[in-house]
Amino acid sequence: MTAGRLAGSSRHGEPWRVGVLFSQTGVTAVVEETQLRGTLLALSEINEAGGIAGCEVVPVIYDPQSNDRNFARLSHRLLANDGVNVIFGCYTSSSRKAVLPVVERLNGLLLYPTLYEGFELSPNVIYTGAAPNQNLMELCAYLLAHYGPRFHLIGSDYVYPRATNQLMREVLADSGGVLTGETYISLNADRRDLVPVIAELRRTRPDVVFSTVVGDPTIHLYQAYADAGFDPRLMPIASLTTTEAEVRAMGCAVAEGHITAAPYFQSVDCVANTEFVRRYQRRYGSDEPTNMCVEAAYYQVHMFARALAQTRTIETDVLREKMLGATFEAPQGLVEINAASSHTTLWTRIGRATRSGQFEVIRQSARPVVADPYLVGYGRTAPHA
């Protein structure tokens, strides 16, 4: 019996059960905890409004502890044992790839709220984070135009950074850029592991440090950079993965001047975001920042709930069809799940970190950008406001 048949539809007032897999401990908890918060905020809003068909949506929550094997094991438990058919979860691409064969085999549905390297399409995943054409392509063009052609790439040692840096190398080669070095560090790296990286930067003096470091080592990288006396006005760290959460953890003064590309920053100026930030901080504290990962985790739950209200069944095949093509006024602006790719049409923005811990948006698309996960339109960038 598949998980979909186990989950079925809510009867006799029984709650809808959904799985939640975000790490509350381990090296990537600094961001995954915020994704958990965004998920729970959305669920509380849905339930406070009466639930779906009069029934609450109840999360079954596990802590995978930033461990890919745990993600695989717990996703199987959710689908096979817990009567769950839909999972909100995963931050790293390696955790997503660990869960992918499980949801495909048991016909579950994973809603994945994190930017990733592209080149994937599964009927059992809805991708609500950015694909490379929605962040990397535009960031690279901006950096080449404003800082120079010489890039040093540094990433955590797993699938997302290596795949993303391969793409960055190709983009630089096509655009006249120069690679001064490429370095990988452990997901468990500490400050001592950054010593040779800083020495290499001091020796080669690139124009840009492109970081795909994730989790706690992000904090160590930026702090080591600041301790070395480098100037972000001359050699910024530019990232797709550094959010307001890491900025808060490393210290706002340490992050000031560095650059991130993302669909969403807390500083986005629109009514939907103002209300989202207000509700988030009312629940979690006035000093708790939002970020692109918590925003995607939040709005994907609401999009799921809208589909569930229409289908009255949580079975994968029915629910997925209703979610494909759906739109939602998210905190970042209007988004749409593309029916052809299961990826989400998102905004492209580039922000510079300020001393307040926020990002000043210095460049953004004039309209949402359709995800191109296989880069069929390679080299095309978004029009600008």
Rank of each mutant, 00 (worst) to 15 (best):
T2N: 15
G4N: 10
A7V: 03
V18E: 05
T25W: 04
V27A: 11
V27R: 10
V27E: 13
T34P: 04
L36V: 08
L36A: 05
L36N: 04
G38S: 04
L41R: 00
S44M: 03
S44F: 06
E48R: 12
E48A: 14
A53M: 13
A53V: 12
Y62H: 15
Q65C: 12
N67G: 03
N70S: 05
F71K: 01
S75C: 04
L78K: 02
G83Y: 06
V84M: 08
C90K: 03
K97Q: 14
K97P: 05
V102M: 02
L106R: 04
L106I: 01
L110W: 10
F119Q: 15
E120W: 15
S122K: 12
P123Y: 14
P123C: 15
N124I: 13
V125Q: 12
A131K: 02
P132S: 00
L139H: 11
H146F: 13
G148H: 14
G148Y: 15
G148E: 13
R150E: 14
H152R: 14
L153C: 15
Y160E: 12
Q166H: 15
L167C: 08
S175H: 15
T180P: 08
T180V: 11
E182P: 13
L187A: 04
R191C: 07
R192T: 14
L194W: 11
L194G: 07
V195M: 12
P196R: 07
V197P: 00
E200K: 01
V209F: 13
F210S: 06
S211G: 02
Y225S: 00
A228T: 03
M235F: 10
A238I: 11
V247R: 09
A249T: 14
A249P: 09
E256N: 00
I259F: 07
A261W: 06
Y264C: 12
Y264R: 06
S267H: 06
D269Y: 02
V271M: 14
T274A: 14
V277F: 09
R282L: 08
R282W: 08
Y284W: 06
P289Q: 09
Y299S: 02
M303K: 05
A307E: 01
R312S: 08
E315W: 01
L319H: 00
E329P: 11
N338T: 09
N338V: 08
S341Y: 10
W347C: 03
R349S: 03
G351W: 02
E360H: 13
P368F: 08
D372P: 07
D372F: 08
Y374C: 11
Y374Q: 08
A382M: 12
A382D: 10
H384A: 15
